[in-house]
Amino acid sequence: MKIFLFLLLCYSSGLGNEIKYNLYLKNPCLNEVEISFNYYLEKDGKQYHISDFKTGTVLLPKKGQYILVSTGTGDIQNIQLNEEVNSDTLTIPRIQEYLVTHDKHGYIFRNCDKPSDGLQKSYYSDGSIKLIGEFKEGLVVGVLKEFYHNGKIKQISNYTKDGFLTKTTRFDENGKIIKE
């Protein structure tokens, strides 16, 4: 009987070793925090996706270093998970690009639900620059620069004064042109 209880205890304690992770997004426009469902974690080339869609929880096999990929904010960062239950909160960029099907431009940039106007900057959750551009009534006019999380240029797009795209140059994370 003692051996059975010992084996049962060892077996049940092994089941509870999984690590839980949740990502939350802070909306700076509404000053609200919500559960994110647009992310995954990666370790040693393996991706771990949400397993509980009620809570947005990812279950992981062990503690340690993971890469957090948030498609909701564009953030990619290394995180260290040391607890049985872990979470992070990322800030949604204030400036968002929206697809508009009834407009000849096909898109518009909004800053907290208002059309972007003037020189505007958007940032990743850690404060590093995500994009900078000149806008007029939600349309880019002039140059729009987008940056990787590490601060290097990701893409430079040129627009007319009427907001029409004329040229885009895309760079890899080492600064090499990959598409023009």
Rank of each mutant, 00 (worst) to 15 (best):
L60K: 06
L60D: 13
K62S: 11
G64S: 02
Q65L: 15
I67N: 07
I67G: 05
I67K: 05
L68D: 00
V69D: 07
S70T: 00
S70Y: 01
S70R: 07
T71V: 12
G72K: 06
G72T: 01
G72Y: 08
T73E: 08
D75S: 02
D75A: 06
I76A: 05
Q77K: 09
N78D: 03
I79W: 05
I79F: 05
I79V: 14
Q80M: 14
Q80A: 08
Q80R: 12
L81R: 01
N82H: 03
N82Q: 13
E83Q: 11
E83H: 05
E84D: 12
V85P: 00
S87T: 05
S87Q: 05
S87R: 09
S87A: 09
L90V: 05
T91E: 13
I92E: 01
R94V: 13
Q96A: 09
Q96I: 13
E97V: 06
Y98S: 04
Y98N: 12
L99P: 00
V100E: 13
V100H: 05
V100I: 15
T101V: 06
T101L: 11
D103Y: 04
K104H: 10
K104D: 02
G106V: 11
G106S: 04
I108Y: 08
I108W: 07
N111W: 03
C112H: 10
K114V: 09
P115M: 09
P115I: 11
S116F: 06
S116L: 11
D117E: 15
D117V: 05
G118P: 08
L119T: 14
L119W: 10
Q120R: 15
K121D: 13
K121H: 14
S122G: 11
S122A: 10
Y123M: 01
Y124T: 01
Y124V: 09
G127N: 09
S128G: 09
I129N: 06
K130M: 15
K130T: 04
L131M: 15
I132P: 00
I132N: 08
I132Q: 13
E134R: 15
E134L: 14
F135L: 11
E137C: 01
E137Y: 10
E137W: 08
E137K: 15
L139M: 10
V140W: 11
G142M: 12
G142H: 10
V143L: 13
V143K: 14
V143N: 08
L144Y: 02
